[in-house]
Write a protein that binds this DNA or RNA. Structure first.
Lengths: 212, 212
DNA sequence: GCCTGGTTCAACCATTTGGTTAAACCATAC
DNA sequence: GTATGGTTTAACCAAATGGTTGAACCAGGC
């Protein structure tokens, strides 16, 4: 199992800083984030940031490396091979949406890095693949197998996986917009999230069902 | 029809600045963007930015207001009522994906504002709704009508619309990640986009088909 | 020619920001 | 008690950044 919490050898103070930094970087981006802002979020003196994580770049790289590990491992974590593809998909969607809800900031930071050009993505993803050997290709393989077994119609598994990820992830990224355009999501976000799990399973499972 | 290009009364210089600012804000975010960076992207002296757009905040608000107008109008533009729902959906997906491809930076800026908390979203979206009277609810209505006509099974139209938007939009946002994880998308992005239109129509249309 | 107006630029200024430092704090060991 | 070592803090510094300014530039009108 991948190391999913921030590195466990962290002291309390380091964890506090790490968590605050993740939150601020996810919101403001690599360059938009201010060291003072992170210090405030951690309710700690600014000099502590430099005492524990040399400088801004080092702090960001630590937080981002962790984020990539989260992202890479998220597929593996949510995927439990069940007797039928329908069950596997249902469990995956439920698990993945819950994962994103729980690791909201990390997912938003991944998006930030993508928007910023994704220069750090390559090496860190290769790194995470080596350490955890759980690339998203496991999910792709699951779809491939289901196609071969005739459980679903022939589809490009890469597009199918991308579609699942998009639909489970994007509404968290665009949460402010969703809540403005759809008041029920504003009134009770958690209920909206649960509704969405049902909707996504229904739509995607039917969408993948074999031709009649 | 909505005013989709940057305000037409702009001079050449203003347009150059505006376009450069859109690119940089979309990449770096509201606070991450640097005025010098925008000036460089526009190949223009930094003082010009202040000559034409008072200060950073004003520049951002102008660019962002335009972006919201784009986003709000995008649904209307891509939606052409066709004889059957299948055709309407096909045309919408094709049109919307093309729209996002063309207005890539504007869409990424929308995401940036969402990540940053979306404080500006509310007023600007209300503003855009007044001016253009083309909120995304038109799309919601289209789905509702198709449900009532029995062309598709009963689904929550808000979730259905969100699913369509997510799948058409997110892979542009996460393009660097997609290209790392799926080399064909790196080798020929445009071909990948075309593939994706087909995949999305197939999956979503089957997913919405009436129960047998 | 030479005004006149908008436009462009290099140099400059004030504030913010990332980062440093030296002293203070506070456990624990002796 | 006090020496020791890691931890925390306020004050400080240098560079980056947003923003200003006064002069130069360059049309078009006279």
């Amino acid at each position: 199992m991948a190391d999913l919490s921030a590195p466990s050898e962290y002291s309390d103070t380091e964890r506090t800083i790490f968590d605050a930094a993740l939150q601020v970087f996810a919101r403001e981006g690599r360059n938009g984030a201010r060291m003072q802002g992170i210090a405030d979020a951690a309710d700690i003196n600014k000099a502590m940031l430099h005492y524990y994580f040399r400088d801004k770049r080092t702090l960001y790289e630590n937080v981002f490396a962790y984020t990539v590990r989260q992202f890479m491992a998220s597929f593996d974590i949510s995927l439990t091979e069940a007797p039928t593809f329908a069950e596997t998909l249902r469990v995956f969607i439920d698990g993945y949406v819950d994962f994103v809800r729980t690791h909201d900031a990390a997912m938003r930071l991944m998006v930030q890095e993508n928007l910023a050009g994704g220069t750090l993505l390559g090496e860190h993803m290769r790194e995470a693949t080596k350490t955890d050997r759980t690339p998203p290709s496991i999910l792709v393989n699951t779809i491939e197998d289901a196609v071969e077994a005739g459980e679903i119609r022939p589809v490009d598994p890469h597009h199918a996986v991308l579609t699942v990820i998009s639909t489970c992830l994007y509404f968290f990224v665009a949460r402010p917009t969703v809540q403005i355009l759809h008041p029920p999501a504003e009134r009770d976000w958690d209920a909206f999230v649960e509704e969405r799990k049902d909707h996504l399973f229904d739509l995607i499972y039917r969408g993948l069902a074999p031709r009649d």
